[in-house]
Design a protein around this nucleic acid. Structure first.
Length: 497
RNA sequence: GCCCCCAUCGUCUAGAGGCCUAGGAUACCGCCCUUUCAAGGCGGGGACAGGGAUUCGAAUUCCCUUGGGGGUACCA
């Protein structure tokens, strides 16, 4: 049997791509690629008030950034075009006509206000808020009268009163008892299809074999199943993956911080980190592997290993993945990214170092263990290079006469060797050690005063590398300033114990 | 309210009746490495929601309770 797997990701372009949507898209993509099937992108844009082409474009850009490409879609076209619901009105009209013909639907003249009032009443009485079905029994005369008045009815599906079973690949057989679902709208009064109807028509038209979507759609599925059956269409397989929750176990929303893919891109996350992290939310490979490229995910993926329980989005772990991928980047690639991010920062944009590829590669290498996201880059570079940032401390480390003598000599070297290469050579690790030997300093008593003098901080990257990145002029300036600050603080030089 | 789903360390998860004194990752803590901070290595604390039932034996099967989430729209 030719396994023609066809799956779809069907976002509604009413916002940017959410991490939850990205994960759903990823699972669909992986399933399609794994099985040699087709990945379809469909735009569910029937909510005219909230949908826009801008969002549609933005979602596509985010998917591409993640590395997820689709075989058929609104932009690429395909044998089942169009892939935008607003362009498929004729398909819905056809299916609606069929439903009218078999009397599976009826016109409903209730206004939104009436429906809302009805829900209120049901709520007050402690009943399940579902449509009463009152328009179901309207006489032909009544309907004709309403039409004559110019009332535009919605088309409502008469939900069959029987058991419905949804066979779910992840959850097994799910049973919905008769009477638990009210009649729902299929075609709105403006002739736009409602979600449950459009989905069924499209999934059938596009010969979707597997519907892989988030758990929140499971309660909708019996409606869709009823529609499939009323239209005598063959059912796709369903797979409802667990939802992604915020740390407070609520639905992930803006108030929890970044939720959209573009926010993570703008915050300096790498797509491979986000993909890797998202893949492991609600799915596991079954072994202890944790790092996966997209092709490796394709090879490892299966729906059987998708988990049923909801997953909390852990921004810390995503950061950890990102730091890992940043460190693993080839040096030249990392340097280019660092330069790109540094260029956004006005403090850094003018610095000549940022146009020196060798310098950049050295800096990117030195800083790579200190950077979790690319947005850390400007801050790290600025604290390295900006002249107004680190104020040299009057520090214990600078108090000893040996340390001050050492710094004076290092300052002389910096003044004497204006050429960066020569200076780097003169301040290599070995050179520093022998310099320290001359002054009776070694280990921390050697490195700490230099570090404090040139950065104002006790912590940072390896010292020889630091001096090389700062260059002779800065080093000379900062040592002079540090010695000045130290003597101005009124502390007499003291001998080391 | 009603319907549906879910339930292992704080978090992501492994675990398909004996391999579990419950494994890995993250986060946290300690040690090592080291000129410091990181990174890395090693180690530590930390979980089967509760109660019944089935079974020689249950994290694993069944039922109930509790808790969490979702749905109940002319949103998707």
């Amino acid at each position: 049997m030719p396994s023609s797997v066809r799956v779809r990701f069907a976002p509604s372009p009413t916002g940017t791509l959410h991490v939850g949507g990205a994960r759903t898209a990823l699972f669909n993509y992986l399933f399609a690629r794994r099985s040699g099937g087709t990945f379809v992108l469909r735009s569910e844009d029937t909510d005219a008030a909230r949908s826009s082409r801008e969002f549609e474009q933005a979602i596509q850009a985010d998917l591409r950034w993640l590395g997820l490409d689709w075989d058929e879609g609104p932009d690429t076209g395909g044998p089942y075009a169009p892939y935008r619901q607003t362009e498929r009105a004729d398909r819905y009209a056809l299916a609606a006509a069929r439903l009218i013909e078999i009397e599976a639907v009826y016109p409903c003249y209730c206004t939104p206000e009436e429906l809302e009032a009805e829900r209120q009443r049901q709520h007050a009485r402690g009943e399940a808020p579902k449509y009463s079905g009152k328009c179901r029994e309207l006489s032909q005369a009544r309907r004709a009268a309403n039409e004559a008045q110019g009332m535009k009815p919605a088309l409502r599906f008469a939900m069959p009163q029987r058991d419905i079973y949804v066979e779910d690949l992840i959850r097994g057989s799910v049973h919905f008892p008769p009477g638990s679902i009210g009649d729902f709208v299929v075609l709105r009064s403006d002739s736009m299809p409602a979600y449950n109807f459009a989905v069924v028509v499209d999934d059938s038209d596009m010969e979707i074999s597997h519907v892989i979507r988030a758990d929140e759609h499971l309660p909708n599925t019996p409606r869709q199943v009823a529609l499939f059956e009323a239209l005598e269409l063959s059912l796709p397989m369903f797979a409802h993956v667990s939802m992604i929750l915020a740390p407070d176990h609520q639905k992930l929303s803006k108030r929890h911080g970044a939720t959209s893919v573009s926010e993570y891109r703008d915050a300096g996350y790498l797509p491979e980190a986000l993909v890797n992290y998202l893949a492991l939310l609600g799915w596991s490979p079954g072994d202890d592997r944790e790092f996966f490229t997209l092709p490796e995910l394709v090879a490892a993926f299966s729906l059987e290993r998708a988990s049923k329980s909801p997953a909390v989005f852990d921004a810390e772990k995503l950061r950890w993945f990102n730091a890992h991928y940043l460190r693993a980047l080839p040096a030249a690639e990392r340097a280019a990214l660092f330069a790109q991010w540094a260029a956004h920062d006005e403090r850094l944009a003018q610095l000549p170092e940022l146009r020196d590829p060798i310098w950049l590669e050295t800096a990117a290498q030195a800083l790579s263990d200190h950077v979790h996201t690319l947005s850390d880059v400007p801050r790290e570079l600025a604290s390295l290079l900006s002249d107004d940032l680190p104020v040299p401390l009057a520090d214990d480390a600078l108090r000893s006469s040996q340390a001050q003598a050492l710094l004076r000599e290092l300052g002389d070297i910096a003044a004497r060797e204006p050429d960066p290469e020569q200076f780097a050579h003169a301040t290599s690790k070995d050179a520093l050690k022998s310099l320290g030997g001359k002054h009776g300093l070694g280990g921390r008593t050697l490195f700490r005063p230099i570090r404090v003098a040139v950065t104002g901080s006790e912590h940072g990257i390896e010292l020889a590398l630091l001096l090389r990145l700062l260059g002779p002029q800065r080093v000379a300036r900062r040592i002079a300033a540090a010695l000045h600050t130290q003597s101005a603080s009124g502390q007499e030089p003291s001998r080391l114990p």
